[in-house]
């Protein structure tokens, strides 16, 4: 009884917050409602006895993905009124896409035929003494190992793509190379000099101005004839 009440509470909150994600005026509030929806989905997993999936959902989606969403949305300078402006114009298109998706879902699920013995399996999905964490691991790493690895490869490709798209060499940045710093010895960096009264460091020949590295001198001033740098500054 309590589980049923809990199910309806979590499901209702999840649907309400999902609706709030699209209807809320402030994008930051939208992301926060999205997080609430994730939490309720995790609670539904818990009710279904899938505690591993529930925790993974919270760790991956709430703990990492949504943080980055929030990060990006907070950094964007969004004009809220402008955001709402296109609503009238785009609403029919959105509704049409939604209707097509709904029709497809109805067709797919309506035409779904269960094998006759599957209902019994659904009620006893796994042996009692194996927890669902171990059961998922057993399946993922044996029967579905290739699909699992391919999913990992897809993510790797996406990651490499993101790095390639955003990576740029910044010549103007000063880099810290800890190996070089650690390799320095007092003998090559320190000199003890007895300085007579009134003598300047340049007259003694111990004035070593910091010499700019040759590649720095060849570079044009940022933004002058290097449009690449200039556009980056603008961002």
């Amino acid at each position: 009884m309590i589980a049923t009440i809990a199910f309806y509470v979590f499901a209702a909150v999840m649907l309400a917050s999902a609706a709030a994600v699209v209807s809320s005026r402030n994008p930051v509030h939208s992301v926060l409602f999205l997080i609430l929806a994730f939490f309720n989905a995790a609670a539904l997993f818990l009710l279904a006895g899938a505690e591993f999936l529930a925790m993974i959902l919270v760790i991956v989606y709430v703990g990492a993905v949504a943080v980055l969403f929030l990060f990006v949305v907070m950094m964007l300078d969004v004009n809220f009124d402008q955001l709402r402006g296109g609503l009238q114009r785009y609403a029919p298109v959105g509704a049409a896409v939604g209707a097509v998706l709904l029709a497809e879902l109805v067709l797919v699920i309506g035409g779904w035929r269960f094998a006759p013995d599957v209902a019994a399996l659904r009620l006893a999905p796994r042996p009692e003494q194996i927890s669902n964490t171990a059961a998922i691991g057993d399946l993922l790493y044996t029967r579905y190992i290739f699909l699992f690895q391919i999913a990992g490869l897809v993510l790797l490709v996406a990651m490499i793509g993101a790095i390639v798209l955003t990576h740029r060499e910044r010549h103007e940045a000063r880099r810290q190379d800890i190996r070089i710093q650690n390799a320095r010895t007092p003998a090559e960096t320190l000199a003890l000099v007895r300085v007579p009264l009134g003598a300047g460091i340049s007259t003694l020949g111990i004035y070593h101005p910091v010499v700019a590295e040759p590649e720095d001198t060849e570079l044009a001033p940022p933004g002058f004839d290097n449009p690449d740098l200039h556009t980056h500054e603008a961002h």
Binding site: I35, I59, G63, A64
Partner: peptide
């Protein structure tokens, strides 16, 4: 996992 999930939420 619960511990890890909660500690990753601390950022919010």
């Amino acid at each position: 996992l619960y511990l890890f999930a909660i500690s990753s939420l601390g950022v919010y």
